[in-house]
Computed example of a mutant assay.
Amino acid sequence: MLESLFVPTLIVALAEIGDKTQLLALLLAARYRRPWPIIWGIVLATLANHFAAAAIGSWVASQLSPALLAWILAASFLAVAGWTLIPDKLDDDDAGAGGRYGPFLATLVAFFLAEMGDKTQVATVMLAAQYEYLSLVVLGTTLGMLLANVPVVLAGNLAADRLPLNLIRRLAALAFLLLALYAGYQAWMLATPA
């Protein structure tokens, strides 16, 4: 049961380092210099976005056979492992979303939009398809998002400039690769007659 919380927390925390939403957090922190409204905006935007993603993942899991789901998860985790190695850039559209409404609303809108189709949202769909406890997956992915973004908001440029982003991207890719291998193993075991 706790695996449903801890694995998503670790995966998203690693995947989020250097992600465009982390760059967005840095931009919002520099622009508004009011960390708590930004942090609360991140919390609510992430909960909403990742709950929707987890609901989709849970529904997909209920529609597929366990073996087919495991093969799809293995391929998806492998694809996200490769995607994680590609550095993100902050799009001008993401940076400007909600900018005139103050730090909380600007963060809420910008983070929700920036997470759409992002690798951490895709990871949330896959993790919810893999784990039974949807609420723990959402809590875990949200905690992972906060672990990666709150220090950036609180410390601004100092923390972001000192992080070994290439190493962290590789560790995140390795974590997704391990999940792909585990899902592939599960698929193989389900497909192999007993």
Rank of each mutant, 00 (worst) to 15 (best):
I86M: 14
L158E: 10
E16W: 02
V7K: 09
D94P: 03
P87A: 14
A159I: 15
A97K: 10
A29T: 11
V12F: 09
E3N: 12
T192W: 04
A53V: 07
M116G: 00
P103A: 15
V109A: 08
A48T: 12
F104A: 03
R34G: 01
D88K: 12
L108M: 07
L174T: 11
G57C: 04
N149W: 05
L143D: 03
A110H: 07
V7S: 10
P151G: 04
A160R: 13
A75Y: 00
E3Q: 14
L23Y: 09
G144Y: 05
A81F: 08
D161R: 15
T124A: 14
V150W: 09
L179I: 05
K119N: 15
K20C: 01
Q22W: 07
L64D: 01
S135N: 05
Q22A: 08
D94H: 13
T124Q: 07
G156P: 07
K89V: 13
I72C: 05
Q63L: 14
D19V: 03
A55F: 05
V152Q: 07
L181K: 00
P164F: 04
H50P: 02
L177A: 13
M116Q: 09
A79D: 01
D161F: 02
P35G: 12
L108F: 13
F77S: 01
V12D: 05
L85I: 11
V109R: 04
F176N: 06
T141V: 15
A172F: 08
E132L: 11
F176E: 00
V122W: 11
A61V: 02
G102N: 05
I17F: 09
T142K: 07
L27T: 13
A25S: 15
N166Y: 08
L90A: 06
Q121S: 09
L154R: 13
A53H: 08
S76V: 02
T46R: 07
V7C: 11
L127R: 06
R31H: 14
A148I: 04
I56T: 10
Y101N: 02
D94C: 04
S135P: 00
L136D: 06
A61R: 05
A45Q: 06
A95L: 06
A52Q: 08
A30R: 15
A53G: 10
D118Y: 06
F77Q: 01
D88A: 15
A53L: 10
S62Q: 10
